[in-house]
């Protein structure tokens, strides 16, 4: 309970210093929040978005499959 109260007090104190969406134009918010090109290197691997799509393609091409399976879809929120 003490921890929750202290956190709530901190929230109230901090909220007055919170960043405002009007601090920057939209383009700057995008540049600050969305990943830079250098942070998107992982997507160059060309992931299929589901396991079965890879199974079908690999079977037709006679290639092995690489599956990245995580709690939360790796191409979404993981």
């Amino acid at each position: 309970m003490v921890r929750m109260l202290s956190l709530l007090v901190a929230v109230v104190l901090t909220f007055s210093d919170a960043p405002s969406v009007d601090d920057k134009p939209l383009a700057e918010w995008r540049a600050r929040i969305a990943p830079a090109e250098s942070e998107r290197a992982w997507s160059s691997i060309g992931w299929r978005a589901n396991f079965w799509a890879a199974v079908e393609e690999a079977n037709a091409a006679e290639k092995p499959i690489l599956l990245w399976a995580m709690n939360g879809h790796p191409l979404g929120c993981t």
């Binding site: 890879a54 690489l66 995580m70």
Partner: peptide, 13 residues
């Protein structure tokens, strides 16, 4: 190395 495979990402649950 990954280019030698057909790659997929998916939700494990």
């Amino acid at each position: 190395l990954a280019a030698k495979f057909v790659s997929a990402a998916d939700e494990v649950h």
